[in-house]
Write a protein that binds this DNA or RNA. Structure first.
Lengths: 319, 319
DNA sequence: CTGAAAGCGCTTACAG
DNA sequence: CTGAAAGCGCTTACAG
């Protein structure tokens, strides 16, 4: 009967007494309205989908935690979908989420403007995280990779390290590209006479190790090394230690992300902190804001700032 | 029309040609069957719910990754719900998942037999992970905490460390209790004359640090320390280093879990490895197996084995 | 305030 | 093989 529905959904249009009786009966019978039927009629699932490239590693773990906390606070369920090897797999995931979610949070290198156009119904609100997509149709939330990287280079230079080498991330990765730009720009600005010195990497610890060995094999060794993420810095550190170098006395080292492990290596790693939990929270709140208003969301681009965390690995050790 | 439904769902009872036409039209129109309507009529959501205490830390991150990979492989969506401060919050989460999921994976200290009885409809398949619940009504998947802990104690003793102290986990935690039992039992068996030496901890790094300091302040210092998880071992290691002790020369140290950070500390940590991804995968597959058969699942208890990983921190360094 | 009725978009016997 | 019809369990105008 209709009154049951009214009572269960806040009770406007029902006597307080009726509402009470209904709630009493409901809890006695452990009655819970059938979610699917409600979704069908209201066209709302109260569920947010999160599309991630992988769940592996501390970055994603923290991100999803931030999303989850914010979703719970706002009464939304969280449907996760990760581990997409390729674009078709991501497309299938997006398709299969249709009708199950009210909006989508997407963090994926596979997802570009064309992907969105052909796989997303115009009506589904989306927030892209760390995306190069510059569409006017979608909200984008980025990390200030450029600013964080240049600030770190500047810090290293001002700490007295006259030359700074950079271990780059994957060429196709948007974050990696921006960090690379930050390095180049800051070098040009603050150490115009020092060489741009870049070795390749792919964000894995293993590639950081190889990069470290490569740096040591070259004729001129830099005074400081800035890895485009912490995992590569950790790998590089291993290479330096194996070679008998002391960090930071012989060579300084810095990373990017401030994942938990950065604090545990010896020496603890100077790095650029991303407030990952907050990144997730803000992304979710942007998305929820879109759901509440009917008009098509004004495509906004927000950038979350980073901060430098100074630890022992760069020789200016405070923390 | 009915043929559309038949074609979209595998095509039995439709001409190949009809089916083809329908699929062509569907993909041209980007048609996707409405999930809610299908859920309503089929009583299947093809979604698994995962109830976790938190998403924080490497253990949960790996666990959820294992669940996700297995769910994807079997065509299930994954709805996560975590960060429950108390039993009521967990109860609300379970209730709100009703009708949205076909089954539930639960890892939570708050969830005991009474909780399950009053919050779960008998018809909802459940697999409990690392749970003390010994109900005959639910499948349980545990880690061999007892076996892993006793094996580690035995290893330390046989490596020549005549006395082994234990840093315990939270008293109310099931895993912690079993690891404690493993320590006591192995000590009684392999070193009947050595004292049982236990200091309190709560699985946090901070508590491990405090436990380390406490151990050093006592009159007799053990030859080896076994922490009930890796994070406490990491904290304890910090305390030892601060006190100028060399690990493993002055004192050996071991942990439990083999979270990634265990490899990154100096010296790398000897520990008991749980294959966390596999734990998640197996749990999901148990659950899916229950969904497929109509009869109420035979309550099974499966235990996943652990293995010892020897690294430098215990002085028998191989890896 | 309350209940009868329609309808959300599917799937599945049922009849043709 | 194919389509018309009923029904899954809700919510929401609509009438009383």
């Amino acid at each position: 009967m209709a009154s049951v529905s009214r009572a269960m959904n806040g009770g406007s249009g029902v006597t307080a007494e009726t509402s009470e009786r209904i709630h009493a009966a409901a809890s006695r019978l452990q009655y819970v309205p059938h979610a699917a039927a409600r979704m069908l009629i209201t066209r709302r699932s109260n569920t947010i989908g999160a599309l991630l490239p992988d769940l592996y590693g501390e970055f994603f773990s923290e991100l999803i935690r931030g999303i989850d906390l914010a979703a719970r606070a706002r009464g939304f369920h969280l449907l996760v979908s990760s581990s997409h090897d390729g674009a078709e797999e991501a497309a299938a995931a997006v398709r299969s989420m249709q009708g199950r979610v009210d909006g989508l949070l997407i963090l994926s290198a596979r997802v570009d403007a064309a992907f969105l156009r052909s796989n997303l119904p115009k009506s589904l609100p989306v927030v892209l995280i760390n995306s190069a997509v510059n569409s006017t149709a979608h909200a984008v939330l980025n990390v200030d990779n450029f600013g964080g990287a240049s600030a770190m280079v500047r810090h290293l230079l001002q700490a007295g390290h006259s030359s700074v080498a950079f271990i780059a991330g994957p060429k196709s990765n948007f974050d990696a590209q921006q960090r690379d730009q930050g390095y180049r720009t800051a070098m040009a600005k603050y150490a115009p006479n020092a060489p741009i010195h870049i070795v390749a990497g792919d964000f894995t610890e293993e590639s950081g190790y190889r990069a470290g060995r490569e740096l040591l094999a070259q004729r001129t060794r830099p005074r400081a090394v800035f890895a485009a993420n912490d995992m590569m810095a950790v790998g590089c550190l291993t290479a330096f230690k194996e070679a008998g170098l002391r960090v930071p006395q012989d060579i300084a080292l810095a990373g990017f992300d401030d994942i938990p492990v950065a604090r545990y290596v010896t020496p603890p790693l100077t790095t650029v902190r991303i407030r990952i939990v907050e990144l997730g929270r803000i992304a979710l709140e942007h998305l929820v804001a879109q759901l509440d208003k009917a008009d098509p969301a004004p495509a906004s681009v927000q950038t979350l700032g980073c901060e430098i965390v100074v630890r022992d690995s760069c020789g200016a050790g405070t923390a």
